[in-house]
Design a protein around this nucleic acid. Sequence first.
DNA 1: CGTCTATTTGAATGTACTCAAAAGCGGTGG
DNA 2: CCACCGCTTTTGAGTACATTCAAATAGACG
Lengths: 193, 193
Amino acid sequence: MYELILKNVSRFIELTPEEVRFFTPLFKSKTIRKKQYLLQEGSVCRYEYFVNRGCLRTFFVDNKGLEHNVQFSVEDWWTGDMYSFLTQKPGRYNIVAVEDSELLYIDHPSLEELYKKVPKFEKFFRHLLQNAFIALQERVLSGMSETAEERYINFRKKYAAMDKRIPQNQVASFLGITPESLSRVRRQLTQKK
Amino acid sequence: MYELILKNVSRFIELTPEEVRFFTPLFKSKTIRKKQYLLQEGSVCRYEYFVNRGCLRTFFVDNKGLEHNVQFSVEDWWTGDMYSFLTQKPGRYNIVAVEDSELLYIDHPSLEELYKKVPKFEKFFRHLLQNAFIALQERVLSGMSETAEERYINFRKKYAAMDKRIPQNQVASFLGITPESLSRVRRQLTQKK
DNA sequence: CGTCTATTTGAATGTACTCAAAAGCGGTGG
DNA sequence: CCACCGCTTTTGAGTACATTCAAATAGACG
């Protein structure tokens, strides 16, 4: 159950067997089924989640009632509402399972405890925050400087694994275009080759 | 010279006179003239900057060579390339003075020193990071769900002070539209009233 | 005053959107 | 196992919004 998360952590910090023994019990496990909510907008994100299996999407609802995906998370990714989790204030994001999924999660107080006992985890979670920050920056930049077609090509490069698992209309929402437009973009691309 | 920054800090954490005496000497002062660069893309952002006077813009250059503004910073704001500063790796942003400006700045080692002596500054700078994060989130959301006109109206609400100080073509670049489009949007708006 | 840059305006173009309808696909129950 | 239902994807036609290119006007600065 903890192999994947330990491998994930060990990419940035090294843990002694003793530290591992302290680390793992702080995480609980949870499975959720396709279409179930992990987080609802307006509620506080009490946990930071690690995806052990499955796939989820994070989205917000604009003032016209339309959903916009901001992230997909598959195995070996972390998810949650970073802002809401850090501040423990209500957030604007929803997280829903795209497939049946299995998660490990840790609450805020446990994470603080972890920092105290094994300070190098501060480095690790700061790293996660930085990654989230960079991902956001890249979204802003690509949204401002690329056409729908370019964004789709980059999406497939970067999230090749996900492209096949996620319904096209969800990918469209992530790219900031309508499902119809994505369908046309795809046709263009196959005709070009 | 330090009144403004101390007032800024005191909005989130309280400092004793002794802590103030430790804090202020860690910052150096610098003035730069309109159109001068504070930071160039590709270089490491070695400082976190506080704007004492003036106005600056942060932008990146896309692969077609076009500039896109991502932030304006006036008096009482912090600026810099958050990602590059935290990681001490080369960043993608440029920062240029829009007006003659006066800055206070602190380097990375000094900030670490500050954290050690006065740990509550960790809270303060985490707060800055969160603000930067939220600002980015809002940009993504507004870029995905609002028309150019809505974005401009929101810009004026939120940055009322800056609207008059910043050339229109720079505002257009911030909103993600061409200067011509912004000009037309403005005409629409005045005609409506 | 002249030069350089910013802003406005016009006309033509393009990209993505909306609305509507058909085709494809997957899951469920009879 | 197949027929049906619901949801996703595709396709078409018309539209809206913003862009490009070009030119005129207005402002700023030395």
